[in-house]
Design a protein around this nucleic acid. Sequence first.
DNA 1: GTGGTCTAGACCACC
DNA 2: GTGGTCTAGACCACG
Lengths: 130, 130, 130, 130
Amino acid sequence: MWLPIQINEQSAEPLYYQIEVQLRALIVSGQVAEGTLLPSIRELAQMLKCSVITVRRVYQDLETEGLLRTRQGTGTYVAKAAEGDRDRLRLSSVAEAMEAAITAGRRVQCTDEELRALFEEALAKDKEGR
Amino acid sequence: MWLPIQINEQSAEPLYYQIEVQLRALIVSGQVAEGTLLPSIRELAQMLKCSVITVRRVYQDLETEGLLRTRQGTGTYVAKAAEGDRDRLRLSSVAEAMEAAITAGRRVQCTDEELRALFEEALAKDKEGR
Amino acid sequence: MWLPIQINEQSAEPLYYQIEVQLRALIVSGQVAEGTLLPSIRELAQMLKCSVITVRRVYQDLETEGLLRTRQGTGTYVAKAAEGDRDRLRLSSVAEAMEAAITAGRRVQCTDEELRALFEEALAKDKEGR
Amino acid sequence: MWLPIQINEQSAEPLYYQIEVQLRALIVSGQVAEGTLLPSIRELAQMLKCSVITVRRVYQDLETEGLLRTRQGTGTYVAKAAEGDRDRLRLSSVAEAMEAAITAGRRVQCTDEELRALFEEALAKDKEGR
DNA sequence: GTGGTCTAGACCACC
DNA sequence: GTGGTCTAGACCACG
């Protein structure tokens, strides 16, 4: 099984964190369905060319969050979650990032208009890139 | 001289980084004018209740960026910068954060409308808080 | 891994600076290849008989310059650079020193011939010493 | 009395050092003759817009070197020196700088030809600037 | 008084 | 094992 996860070597963000964020997004957005059997730790480590320790940490963290479920001998599955729960999670990380951006803007005394302009700019830039 | 810098003990962000971000914002937004003599590292350390070394790191990082100028025996000043340069810096950090928010949104397959809604929500929430 | 770095205890130059200059030279001249994993800060500190912190400063400064790349848990590598970039760096420090020498000469009203003579003399003296 | 001494605010070199180097050059090159009465510490400090402490240090250092002579109540004079002595001093600082440049070159494995080219380049560049 | 260097040691995060 | 942060304290150089 293949997972669309990209690692950015240049980034200062820790490896495990990059993977975690992307895997979490795949789950809460339903791109990886409930009950799906994920690749084994070794497999995923090979796919991503990183240490098994790193992948283990990702699986563990997400299991602690209740998004994954590990069953001895069979592997790691995507856990079932209450409908509302998943959708709340889906938007919460985005909302957080949005608030961070606005905090950054306020620090340099941006007006609402400037912030809106920067938002639309970023949106347009993202469209191009894809 | 007093500087409006808040430290969040709870945050996972390193101390020096919190200070750096806020001081940088004060400078690039012109709230601390060019040529201003900043508090000595010892003074600021006392004000922020942290180690002298932590402040020193902040001053040094910002000097490397070209925002500060220090002269031994004299103190640390806000450096002069090209007009456009400063304004570019002012918005770049915000733009970056905005792009990060949108990337986070795309990962969980947000539509443009969802993103706009989250942006306005965050904006409204920020207004309340202030 | 061993690095040909000499420390001069007598010199007024700061320890970290002596190390920095020599390591930078090793990198930009290609004597330490791109992608090479450098000794850990603890190892190099032991090799050079100085504090871990002194080495850390060197690595960090060179990372800021873009010559090194460090990843937590992994170590510090020589970064990849554009070809021209590296060669430009290789000669720039020498050019700077050369200009300083000529400025010193002009201050004491040396003629071009005197400067050339001093240059050749220094060149010859260097050959002997090696 | 006026002295052609330039202070570079941007330079990382200490104030006293910049002044010392230039005043020493004026003396050993004969641009300020033996026996000349230099400006008082206060005067020179005013001329250079720096602290009297800084100028005092310069005069003291040069007196220690034997280039100056202070007489209570009358002021500071350029000392007399043996002919050869002065000429030796005149070139020694230049020779030193030249050797430093060549050391820098050897560190990045410059050939003699590269060094010569850099020397001539620096010479040409200096001619332009004047 | 200012900043700069070097030292030590503790504790944490990452792989 | 790796690097990163924060702390302390001593000593020096500059103005």
